[in-house]
């Protein structure tokens, strides 16, 4: 029995209708980026929101996904659809390899270890000639085709691909949250020792979470590369990218399947708008304002936007209950 299905379908249909109402290209652009980053946030949420293991290295999996499909397309003319799965397998492999040594570590030590892994992968890509090193890969432009995942005349196909991926990922997250593995992960988050004492193999379950999370991030990476059509190690593997994923999930509400989409819906339009309105001068004022807004949210809404929403919903429920009581009394 899986919960939330109806509200999730409503959410996805609502997003699907939006671009048909608002037809401007810039709006479509924001929506594509929003969905890609929301997907990343959902993936990160599995390992950090559910399992409580803070990862500062998700940019690595995102980058591996982007690179796998791009290199295959650039070097061997293999469709990104195949590259997408190759990327996911690679990312899952890397996640599995680093999981065993890293999951012995707790809290900050684990977070810094994931950061270190991402930095090492970045250095390798920077000096790897086969993937064009620091120059990055400009994907060859081909005619619009679904098979090559390139659409140059309209952003709508990208939008629906991104939405499709987001829908799949959010359903997977919803399924995990309400399945046995989800409860195990939450037990690990609440208390590692207690989880172990009741017989949960913590390392195994954390590894499952990490592998799934890495593979889903890689899918988003492929889509991002196909959308931007240019990738280099400095835009994909940086700490800033990892933190952006952390940021939007924490902003929306960590450990909640709606958190990443709410966070992305605020963060991405905000950063795109400040960039378009104020960023042209290169003075950095757009990111200054953005930084201030992030600080304000952290100071005054520490539980994320979802915390605020839940508070309001609870208040409404309380009022209803209150009214009901009054009626029964009279």
């Amino acid at each position: 029995m899986v919960k939330n299905i109806r509200s999730l379908i409503i959410l996805i249909v609502a997003i699907a209708i939006l671009p048909l109402i608002f037809k401007s290209d810039s709006f479509h652009n924001v929506l594509v980026l929003l969905l890609i980053f929301a997907t990343l946030g959902e993936a990160w949420n599995i390992i950090t929101g559910f399992a409580g293991q803070t990862s500062f290295g998700h940019a690595a999996f995102f980058g591996i996904g982007a690179y796998a499909s791009s290199v295959l397309f650039y070097r061997f003319n293999i469709s990104p659809w195949i590259g997408m799965f190759v990327g996911a397998i690679f990312a899952a492999g890397v996640a599995a390899i680093i999981s065993y040594p890293c999951f012995r570590l707790k809290d900050s030590y684990f977070a810094i270890a994931t950061l270190a892994v991402a930095e090492i992968i970045k250095q390798l890509f920077v000096s790897w000639d086969f993937v064009e090193g620091a120059t990055g890969i400009s994907l060859p432009i081909v005619d619009d085709s679904l098979w090559h995942m390139q659409f140059n005349s309209s952003k709508l196909p990208y939008l629906y691909l991104a939405l499709g991926l987001f829908a799949i990922v959010i359903f997977i997250c919803n399924f995990i949250e309400n399945s046995k593995i989800g409860f195990y992960l939450k037990a690990i988050r609440e208390s590692h020792e207690v989880a172990e004492s009741i017989g949960i193999n913590t390392t195994n379950y954390k590894t499952y979470a990490m592998v799934i999370s890495a593979a889903l991030s890689a899918f988003a990476g492929t889509l991002y590369a196909q959308y931007i059509l240019y990738i280099d190690p400095f835009m994909l593997f940086t700490l800033d990218m990892s933190i952006k994923i952390v940021l939007l999930t924490v902003l929306g509400g960590i450990g909640n399947i709606y958190g990443p989409i709410i966070g992305a819906a605020i963060l991405i339009p905000l950063s795109e708008t400040t960039r378009i309105v104020l960023g042209g001068t290169g003075s950095g004022i757009d990111l200054m304002i953005f930084g201030v807004l992030v600080i304000l949210v952290a100071c005054f809404q520490p539980k994320g936007i979802i915390g605020l929403v839940q508070k309001i919903v609870n208040n409404i429920k309380k009022q209803k209950v209150g009214e009901g009581k009054v009626e029964t009394n009279s």
């Binding site: 933190i243 952390v246 940021l247 924490v250 902003l251 990111l287 200054m288 953005f290 930084g291 201030v292 807004l293 992030v294 600080i295 949210v297 952290a298 100071c299």
Partner: peptide, 9 residues
């Protein structure tokens, strides 16, 4: 989140 905002600022 807050320190990252500070860093950006």
């Amino acid at each position: 989140l807050a320190t990252f905002g500070l860093s950006m600022f």
